[in-house]
Design a binder for these strands. Structure first.
Lengths: 132, 132
DNA sequence: TTATATGCAAACCTTTTGCGGAACA
DNA sequence: TGTTCCGCAAAAGGTTTGCATATAA
């Protein structure tokens, strides 16, 4: 039985992810913390993010043509990715259908822990650039 | 203006993806074809899959902890990924809500081309294994 | 005290890319 | 014949991992 320990690094990493709405990549999390913990290694960031995501304390999101992103907001919501500039943001207004998980579960035989929906398109800025 | 050419490789790659329901990775597509085209390079597979996906002729799907998968079935549908063994399959019975794209578009200012939903959980086999 | 976590660096896996030669149109 | 595409191999991400050391409990 492995006992998890509280370390300075772990605490910093978790609060970095929970304290932002930018859906940072592992490298961005690392950059957010290095002023406070200059020796923090990227490997440690990955190890901790992975553990937090597996435990369900944060979300890990896989995006086409982009490194994985991490989200400390567990409120059910969707994400939008700009296929031009990579901008990545939340979309809350549409109901996330948690019921769906139960329906899929019943019909597929899987036990479903969650689902992730990513919308792909062009952000307003990139749409404008295109016109010029 | 670039004119796209029909090549033996391109044809084989497209029909490999369209002819299976296994959502193959690029490497699997490569393996599916090498008996017919032994010199086919993985780079060529990637180049063609990318182009086909960008054109919208096939779908590219990004999955946590897994290489990207390609799907020749453009019928709107969802996917389920087993977080234990990596099994990846279709789920058709639930309506894919294409209307959602228009709603998100109107409210976010993005122009939305598509959305991808992946359900994560344990497949029946892995659930069983766990009990033993 | 001792098991867990870290830092560092190497390795790994997936994907992209530069280049010279092949082949479609 | 000119331009696009391919094969090859190298390189570029992104992520994981082995090992010796540091540190939480």
């Amino acid at each position: 039985m492995i006992k998890e320990r509280t370390t300075k690094q772990k605490t910093l990493i978790l609060s970095a992810v929970q304290g932002t709405k930018t859906h940072p990549t592992a490298e961005q999390v690392h950059a957010m913390i290095t002023d406070v913990a200059p020796n923090l290694s990227l490997g440690t960031v990955y190890r901790n993010l992975n553990r937090l995501a597996e435990t369900g304390i944060i979300r890990r999101i896989s995006v086409i043509n982009s490194p994985d992103r991490f989200d400390g907001d567990l409120t059910p919501h969707h994400h939008i990715s700009c296929t031009d500039c990579g901008k990545f943001c939340d979309f809350f207004e549409i109901n996330y259908d948690a019921e769906l998980d139960r329906v899929i579960e019943a019909r597929s035989g899987f036990s479903i822990a969650k689902h992730e929906t990513v919308f792909y398109g062009k952000c307003p800025e990139c749409k404008n650039k295109e016109l010029n």
